[in-house]
């Protein structure tokens, strides 16, 4: 039997906020540090300068604030904790997010929250094309508009748009639910408007509240799959 001794106390004071200045440190140093971080810590990233892959693969209950603009894949594969970006985010914001929260105060480029399996992504501004593409359970709330081909092949989760949606919304959608307050330029293949029932108003109110928004759920319309393309059929050949 080996006698175990208590591990040494963590070097970082859990109550202290750690700042990483990307004018002086590398992205590698930042990500390694937050991969080694422990639950409850708070991190602030200054001078992000639009660099790519900031705060990716977080797997601890930490809070990360990025003060400025982030490049591609900010908070990619986010798994735990909260990331806030006080600026805009590039392509693939929070791609494949599993849980936790990612909040962008500005706009997000295309493929925001792509393939996300869970968690909440909030974009206060607009999102570009393919927002929520192939989403698999993530919840997305966009304060402004979203671009074309958003929620393409969306499998599960909820996409809430407080502004307008671009062309081909929800093309080839599976079981995800889409709520849009403004106009929809066009719906994609197999995506239709559906009735907004009581349970939808309830979940929409919860999502809006989680995103810190005050929009009235009754002003939204709901879209989802007609489920006509779930099986290959010769009669669907003109639908694609």
């Amino acid at each position: 039997m080996v006698t175990l001794t208590a591990p040494e106390a963590p070097a970082v004071d859990v109550l202290k906020e750690t700042t990483v200045d990307l004018a002086a440190s590398t992205v590698r140093e930042l990500n390694q540090a937050i991969h080694n971080a422990e639950d409850g810590q708070a991190w602030t990233v200054t001078n992000p300068g639009g660099k790519h892959s900031l705060a990716v693969g977080i797997n601890a209950g930490i809070a990360v604030t990025i003060d400025g603009h982030a490049g591609y894949y900010a908070a990619g594969m986010h798994q735990k904790g909260d990331v806030t970006i006080n600026g805009n985010a590039g392509v693939g914001l929070a791609e494949n997010i599993m849980s936790g929260t990612v909040h962008v105060r500005g706009d997000a480029s295309q493929s925001a929250a792509a393939t996300g399996h869970g968690g909440l992504v909030v974009i206060d501004g607009n999102a570009g094309a393919r927002c929520g593409i192939s989403m698999k359970g993530v919840d997305i709330v966009v304060g402004g508009n979203i671009g074309h081909m958003s929620a393409f092949m969306a499998q599960a989760g909820r996409l809430v748009v407080c502004g307008d949606a671009g062309d081909a919304l929800g093309d080839s959608i599976y079981e995800a639910r889409i709520y849009v307050k403004g106009t929809v330029a066009s719906l994609g293949a197999d995506c239709i408007e559906k009735p907004l029932r009581e349970e939808h108003l309830t979940e929409l109110a919860e999502l809006l509240a989680a995103a810190g928004r005050t929009d009235n759920p009754a002003h939204f319309k709901r879209y989802g799959s007609a489920r006509n393309l779930y099986h290959f059929s010769v009669h669907n050949s003109t639908s694609y």
Binding site: V27, R28, N31, H52, S53, V56, G57, G71, Y72, Y73, G76, M77, V91, G92, E95, S111, A114, T115, R130, I133, S134, F152
Partner: peptide
Amino acid sequence: PDWTGPDDLEIKIGELREIT
């Protein structure tokens, strides 16, 4: 869904390397 072409792929590979 989140990258197109070799310039994006370079950034995507960078992300996967950072995560791992």
